[in-house]
């Protein structure tokens, strides 16, 4: 990159302006409005009052239901992130160790192509598979393994399965990048020192992919904590997940201040967890690479 366009030059700031304006208009302004909305009081008919206060947050943090939903949301997002990182390993390994450029391109297309489809469509595919008269039940019944159809939908397990499928590419890509950056001489050095494949994986490869695994986990965690389409369609509206509560308060009950307070609570808590993971990752990188 040329010095002239480097950080700090007036030209660089000029280039940043359109992006900054876009962010200001569609992130900062709505964010401020959301904060203000969350501080509004409502009357018994859920009509907004002109007064401001913390009554909505009081409701969030004193309701066992909302606190339970918050914890469940974090737990489900964390479990999804862990499963995604685990399942990302074979895919990332295949991507990095495929010698032929053509095959590697094919694998990347396979990996990324689901992202070109809407989340709603991908989630509907799971309904087709898991419904009472869906593909999985059909096959099991025809094989004689079950008599009555299993209830595969409308529970948290199905939600997690769908989350993992939808979000897996976000875990594979950073892991593959991290894995691909390990110089070939490092596993060779480990072998020359007497370590077999298993020891080398556990003591050299795995530690060096911590940044990639953390990046993937942060992305998946944040996406899973904020997702409402997938749990609503697959888990149903009764699942104790905060995004579903927000959806109900905003669009069904029309208590916008409470929906705003719930949203900001979820946003702050999710950001705090992601920030903590990011600190762990940055500390590791500073220790290993000095920057």
């Amino acid at each position: 990159m040329s010095r002239a366009a480097g950080a700090g030059s007036p030209f660089a700031w000029l280039l940043l302006t359109p992006g900054m304006l876009f962010l200001a208009a569609f992130l900062v302004v709505p964010g401020v409005l959301l904060v203000m909305l969350s501080l509004r009081d409502v009357d018994g008919m859920l009509m907004m009052l002109p007064s401001y206060g913390f009554s909505q947050y009081l409701k969030v943090f004193t309701s066992a239901g909302y606190l339970d939903a918050l914890l469940t949301t974090l737990w489900v997002a964390a479990l999804t992130a862990i499963l995604c990182v685990l399942l990302a390993w074979p895919a990332a390994w295949l991507l990095v160790n495929t010698r032929s450029r053509t095959w590697r391109t094919v694998l990347y297309v396979i990996l990324i192509s689901p992202l070109l489809t809407s989340v709603v469509i991908r989630t509907f595919a799971w309904i087709v598979l898991l419904a009472q008269n869906g593909l999985v039940n059909d096959v099991l019944r025809k094989l004689g393994l079950i008599d009555a159809p299993l209830a595969l939908l409308w529970n948290m397990k199905a939600v997690i399965v769908a989350y993992v499928q939808v979000m897996l590419p976000f875990a594979v890509l950073p892991l593959a990048t991290s894995l691909g950056e390990i110089p070939a001489a490092l596993p060779r050095a480990s072998h020359s020192l007497g370590a077999g494949a298993r020891h080398t994986f556990l003591h050299v490869i795995l530690p060096l992919t911590i940044p990639g695994m953390m990046s993937g986990a942060i992305i998946v965690f944040a996406l899973a904590a904020g997702s409402y389409v997938t749990p609503l369609l697959i888990g149903g509206r009764l699942q104790p997940l905060l995004p579903i509560n927000i959806y109900q308060q905003a669009l069904q009950i029309a208590n916008l201040p409470l929906a705003a307070a719930l949203s900001l609570t979820l946003l702050v808590v999710t950001a705090a967890v992601a920030a903590a993971m990011s600190v762990v990752q940055k500390n590791w990188e500073r220790r290993v690479y000095g920057h």
């Binding site: 110089p183 050095a189 020359s192 050299v204 060096l208």
Partner: peptide, 20 residues
């Protein structure tokens, strides 16, 4: 024999120290 059973010490061009 695979490399890890050969009892050989090797110094690589890039040194290949384990960075972590």
């Amino acid at each position: 024999l695979p490399p890890h059973q050969r009892d050989i010490g090797m110094v690589f061009q890039s040194y290949a120290l384990f960075p972590h």
